[in-house]
Simulated scan of single mutants.
Amino acid sequence: MPVTDDIAACRHCADRFAATASGHRPRPVVWFRPGARILIASQAPGMRAHLSGKPFDDPSGVRLRDWMGVDGDTFWDRDNVAVVPMGFCFPGYDAKGGDIPPPKVCAAKWRIAALDHAGDPPVTLLIGGYAQDWHLGRGRVTDRVRDWRALAPRTWCLPHPSWRNTAWLKKHPWFEAETLPALRAAIADTLA
């Protein structure tokens, strides 16, 4: 059985998710296959992605697709984009309504096999601190995003596209002015 089927069938965190404020069941969002041109290494699906079964099917995804310069059809075409998050399931909300971090057990159990299955796409987007730390070792998101030229055009460190990062975006106008045009050009070249 391919790793995608194994991940889709995983219920390892059922008790953990049942104990969250959201009290939900596992529903791995598996969105990758060999041959995709872009790999998105991200954090974990949100509630909307959990419900729809499509990664970044929420306002964060709208912002991410804008950053990439692609439409939804292009983004959700698995020949174009593979999404391999640190946690394949929505981790849930805490008692205050905040997102719970992806359980480390998911990356330990599935990440290497998932990345091996996805292959080696020409462009990788490392979104947020959890994915960046896993791929690059400990570091600061802002420093990595600012130093995009060190890894581009193959690897791009991005902040999470959540609305919670709107203040970060306003504080760092260079991201929109310098990083995003270069990212969009790299994505366009890769998909051409």
Rank of each mutant, 00 (worst) to 15 (best):
35 G>C: 08
168 W>D: 07
143 D>A: 15
90 F>W: 14
145 V>I: 13
43 Q>C: 08
3 V>A: 12
44 A>P: 00
86 M>I: 08
35 G>Y: 09
74 T>P: 00
37 R>T: 07
163 W>N: 14
61 G>H: 03
39 L>T: 06
173 P>A: 04
169 L>W: 10
5 D>S: 14
190 T>M: 00
101 P>W: 04
175 F>S: 00
26 P>T: 06
112 I>S: 13
33 R>Y: 03
1 M>I: 12
115 L>S: 03
70 V>F: 05
21 A>R: 12
101 P>L: 09
38 I>G: 02
16 R>G: 02
80 N>M: 07
162 S>A: 12
124 T>E: 13
150 A>R: 15
31 W>S: 15
40 I>T: 09
15 D>R: 14
57 D>Q: 05
125 L>G: 08
186 A>L: 03
125 L>D: 11
10 C>M: 06
94 D>C: 04
111 R>W: 10
75 F>S: 04
108 A>W: 01
177 A>N: 01
132 Q>F: 07
40 I>L: 15
186 A>Y: 04
192 A>R: 12
160 H>P: 01
35 G>I: 09
174 W>S: 08
30 V>H: 04
172 H>M: 09
192 A>L: 03
129 G>P: 05
89 C>P: 01
8 A>R: 15
143 D>M: 13
144 R>N: 13
157 C>P: 10
61 G>I: 07
75 F>D: 04
99 D>W: 12
69 G>D: 11
115 L>K: 06
62 V>L: 09
127 I>T: 08
169 L>D: 08
149 R>T: 15
22 S>M: 07
44 A>N: 14
11 R>K: 15
44 A>I: 01
79 D>F: 00
118 A>H: 05
41 A>E: 13
6 D>V: 15
5 D>I: 07
182 A>D: 08
93 Y>K: 11
170 K>Q: 13
192 A>H: 06
112 I>R: 15
136 L>S: 11
191 L>Y: 08
122 P>W: 05
168 W>R: 06
157 C>E: 02
17 F>V: 05
71 D>I: 05
153 P>F: 05
140 R>E: 15
45 P>T: 07
31 W>H: 15
141 V>K: 10
124 T>R: 14
31 W>G: 11
107 A>L: 00
152 A>Y: 08
47 M>G: 07
65 R>H: 04
113 A>W: 00
181 P>W: 02
128 G>N: 06
121 P>Y: 05
22 S>P: 03
59 P>G: 04
97 G>P: 04
182 A>W: 01
98 G>H: 13
148 W>H: 15
122 P>D: 06
38 I>A: 03
174 W>E: 10
21 A>E: 11
22 S>A: 14
67 W>E: 02
180 L>A: 00
84 V>Q: 01
136 L>R: 13
40 I>G: 11
115 L>I: 05
64 L>T: 03
68 M>H: 06
60 S>C: 09
155 T>Q: 12
66 D>N: 11
88 F>W: 08
58 D>R: 04
87 G>C: 02
19 A>I: 06
41 A>M: 13
144 R>G: 14
